[in-house]
């Protein structure tokens, strides 16, 4: 299963462009243009990694990050913004953002961080799956290895 990525950026052209480039690299990508919209999309379907612009009108990146982490703790967030906002980046990292990427940067840098974040999240989901299996064993109803268990697909 490929990483499900949500790109959030109020610069519409950038958001669209980045999503397209990620899609070409076989990721499952959606995009939107604001914090509120992002939260709504996250409530509708799961995403593994959110690439989030820090500078946005209305709901800024930091508030969005806080809210994403509160509602969907397993979803990893990569902050993405211009160089002048280093302080915000550091604050975001303290709040649990996975990583920070300066804008603009090479697509390879983005995919490398996305992959890293995806594997992190996958490891956490594995722990949950194992815990569930453990629980089933305890209850005397051991399950076969679930057919739904998947391997993370990292695009080449």
């Amino acid at each position: 299963m490929a990483a499900r990525i949500l790109v959030v950026d109020d610069e519409r052209a950038y958001s669209f462009d980045l999503s397209e480039r990620l899609r070409q690299r076989d990721y499952d990508v959606q995009f939107c243009f604001g914090g509120n919209e992002a939260l709504e999309m996250l409530s509708r379907r799961p995403f593994d990694v959110v690439v989030l612009s820090v500078v946005m009108p209305q709901m800024d990146g930091i508030s969005t990050l806080k809210e994403i982490k509160r509602r969907h703790p397993l979803t990893e967030v990569i902050l993405h913004c211009k160089n002048a906002t280093m302080q915000v980046a550091a604050r975001g990292m303290c709040l649990g953002a996975f990583e920070y990427l300066a804008k603009p940067c090479k697509i390879e840098q983005i995919t490398a961080k996305v992959n890293e974040a995806f594997l992190y999240k996958f490891a956490q989901e594995e722990r949950i799956r194992k815990a569930k299996m453990h629980l089933a064993v305890l209850r005397g109803q051991p399950q076969k290895e679930s057919a739904w268990s998947f391997k993370p697909a990292i695009p080449k």
Partner: peptide, 11 residues
């Protein structure tokens, strides 16, 4: 155990 799993889901 179920509560613990709930906990992992919460971070």
């Amino acid at each position: 155990m179920e509560t613990a799993i709930e906990g992992i889901k919460m971070g």
